[in-house]
Design a protein around this nucleic acid. Structure first.
Length: 378
DNA sequence: ATCTGTGTTGAC
DNA sequence: TCAACACAGATG
């Protein structure tokens, strides 16, 4: 990588690599920060000065806790828990990464966590709302938001929806967590209703990287708003192990099919799904209405520990709720809190971030609507 | 081709 | 617990 140059011109590489240009702030960073070599030790710097190559190659340390430099000049955020690193994503700005760490620290360690910036939790109302928001989401969900840079949007949405992050009552200042990093003890263990199941076809587990959702099930359970059909939305499903799977769900006009695309192939791979296996979609019957996914092999062995969830019949009607000038579909019995609209009119989290899948969804369309059905704990 | 984030290690 | 470093694997 770039073995000829003494250092990468980060500003230009960033511009070329990213669909969204870096912010002026990045450009204004000190030259040293912009002078990084690529990853790996194979890069040889030809510095006539004779300056120690290893020295030149060295990445700058961050002044912030939980923030680590990336070879391309960006910043990673990470937090440790139980001797394990939890990666919080990469960011253009060191401060963004530091903020991500802070949020994770609050979620993982409670109100008294040491943070880079001011403690999240004063006693003012806004902080309480954020604390409630944090505690109403599993650690995994918070981490996912941080990694996808949707935290602020989802927090805003929560504030606008209910002002309490769907966590009613007093906030426990010592931090009572509803979700755990492992296991499905978060919002997952309540009663579930099975929505539908499908025996996957060869193409569902093949190279097309998509799962076709039978139309009647799709329209009944995952209605798409006009205008979001082709663009898709992100759906979160929790599996039996408590892992959250986030799939893009959209309608393909070409085949007139509802499909799970992005993320699906990974699920197939990890679960070792084969044609004929049966994928099941469920939803909790509690207030949170989280979504779940599971599967069983053709021969019948299920990945779940045989919990037989009561199957309730679905009500077909779909309501449209108008919120903040945006139509949000609401299924009967589904709290609107299960649908999270991301509207990046509000925040700079994405800011100069390079476009990623999630960001694209927000950026492409001027309406910038993205619904995330959050699916629970990790 | 480029970047992410994991594997690993040693300091604290 | 934490950050530094290297680079395999993921992503574009």
């Amino acid at each position: 990588m770039d073995s000829g140059g003494s250092c990468i011109d980060e500003t230009s590489s960033d511009h070329s690599a990213n669909s969204i240009s870096v912010s002026p702030l990045t450009v204004l960073l000190t030259p040293e920060k912009l002078c990084r070599v690529g990853s790996g030790s194979s890069v040889v710097l030809d510095l006539e000065t004779g300056v120690d190559q290893a020295e030149s190659r060295k990445l700058p340390s961050s002044q912030y806790k939980g923030v680590v430099p990336q070879p391309n000049g960006r910043w990673g955020a990470q937090i440790y828990e139980k001797h394990q690193r939890v990666w919080l994503g990469t960011f253009n700005e060191e401060q963004e990464a530091a903020k991500a760490y802070d949020i994770a620290a609050q979620r993982f360690r409670g109100r008294d966590a040491i943070t880079n910036f001011k403690p999240l939790l004063d006693s003012n109302e806004d902080d309480d709302i954020e604390a409630a928001f944090l505690n109403s989401h599993s650690k995994a969900e918070i981490v996912d938001m941080l990694r996808k840079h949707t935290y602020n949007d989802e927090l805003d949405q929560s504030k606008r929806n209910f002002g309490d992050g769907s966590c009613h009552g007093k906030i426990n200042r010592s931090g009572i967590y509803m979700g755990l990093t492992t296991g499905s003890m978060g919002q997952g263990m309540g009663a579930r209703e099975q929505l539908f199941e499908k025996a996957v076809t060869p193409s569902d587990v093949g190279k097309l990287n998509r799962l076709v959702i039978p139309k009647q099930h799709a329209e009944k359970n995952f209605p798409l708003q006009t205008g979001t059909t082709s663009k898709g939305v992100l759906l979160n499903f929790e599996d039996n192990g408590g892992k959250v799977w986030r799939f893009r769900y959209s309608y393909w006009n070409s085949s007139q099919s509802y499909v799970l695309t992005k993320g699906w192939s990974r699920f197939v791979k990890e679960k070792g799904l084969k044609a004929g296996d049966i994928v099941m979609f469920m939803r909790s019957t509690g207030g949170d209405k989280h979504l779940f996914i599971d599967f069983k092999t053709r021969t019948g062995s299920s990945s779940i520990q045989q919990p037989i969830y009561p199957v309730h019949h679905q009500q077909p009607a779909v309501q449209v709720v108008r919120l903040f000038g945006v139509n949000i579909f609401k299924m009967p019995n589904i709290a609107v809190s299960g649908l999270v609209e991301n509207n990046n009119n509000h925040h700079a989290w994405i800011g100069n971030k390079r476009i990623r899948e999630v960001d694209l969804l927000q950026t492409i369309d001027c309406c910038k609507k993205q619904h995330i059905i959050s699916a629970g704990a990790l």
